[in-house]
Nucleic acid binder design. Structure first.
Lengths: 176, 176
DNA sequence: ATTGATTGTCTTGATGTCGAGACACTTCCA
DNA sequence: TGGAAGTGTCTCGACATCAAGACAATCAAT
């Protein structure tokens, strides 16, 4: 199958139709003077992102946590032992503002998933540490997320996945 | 060039590195037991979507409108003459709730970009119609958006764009 | 040592969105 | 023709987020 995946893709593309095809068709009727190629890529990325958010939400609620909770817990989990980060580092990782992060850490503390500790090296600072319960929650949720995402990729041959990841990397790299 | 574009991609992938490579590396250190392939695709889609939102915001503010305004105006514009849709149709197009749409139409009416009309065929209903000013605003903003998005695609050869769009369609089609 | 600038965190007020419910009109069927 | 179910829109209360500013501790330079 992998040797023929490109032909397979071409065949599928011809047969398959998605919401964005309708969108492009409508714009083409109204603004035939414009090159709509960018819409073919970016509108699909936006819509996939929205669907993905919903899939994430579903996967996480089965594990009793919400998406924003996962974002924070996952950043701490990725940091490795002892699973500690400053609020400032957390808000840079998760791209939210400081007020939002204060609120999030408050609620995660109430739920017993993280705890706040004074930073021994900087008396202005605080460290947020994952609790044992928090680590278990994020590990379970991450496994559920990977399973849900793997389902979404099920129809895509390995070779196409790698190609897709590579093309997306080319788009994303300039931002990093 | 087109004949060698696949090899070109492979070479670029080897040379280029993005934020998600770091993310996957960190997860791999902590959870080497998991298959992180889905992250390579979906995390890039999420992050690109976020960057794209910012690029959209920039392109639109240059034209004096906001992203949520564009979403509503563009749905009306795509509908074609006479640029009218019901609030219910608008909220299905833009995936927001009815309360949100009421609020948005209120503000767009205040700005003179749309007007509310009674639906002649259904006395329960209302039609939202693009004004002349609204049509000019959305056309200008759309052109700016396409230009900004074309910039983001500038480094990607035509063949790769088409391949990327096709792969994304395969992921998106099951949702549609 | 003292001053000034910087960094890190939290507080406050405003805003946009969602979800649930209310209300009006329409459609269907007896 | 009458009543019930359905549809379309709007209102209201709760909530998470953001932006700006306040406050405390640290660092750098004289």
């Amino acid at each position: 199958m992998s040797r023929f995946s490109t032909a397979f893709v071409v065949w599928q593309n011809a047969a398959m139709r998605d919401e964005v095809d309708d969108l492009v068709e409508a714009w083409g009727r109204e603004r035939g003077d414009l090159d709509l190629d960018p819409v073919e890529v970016f509108s699909r990325i936006s819509r996939l992102s929205r669907h993905l958010d919903l899939a994430r939400r579903d996967a996480f609620t089965a594990h009793g946590i919400e998406s924003w909770e996962f974002d924070v817990l996952a950043a701490l989990r990725r940091a490795g032992e002892p699973y500690e980060l400053s609020p400032g580092r957390l808000l840079r990782e998760t791209l939210v503002t400081s007020g939002t992060m204060t609120n999030r850490v408050d609620r995660l503390t109430d739920r017993g998933l993280v705890q706040r500790l004074p930073d021994p090296h900087d008396r202005r600072g605080v460290l947020v540490r994952l609790t044992v319960e928090g680590k278990a929650a994020v590990d379970g949720a991450f496994e559920a997320l990977l399973a849900a995402e793997a389902d979404l990729l099920a129809d895509l041959p390995d070779e196409d996945r790698a190609r897709l990841a590579g093309l997306l990397r080319q788009l994303l790299a300039p931002f990093s």
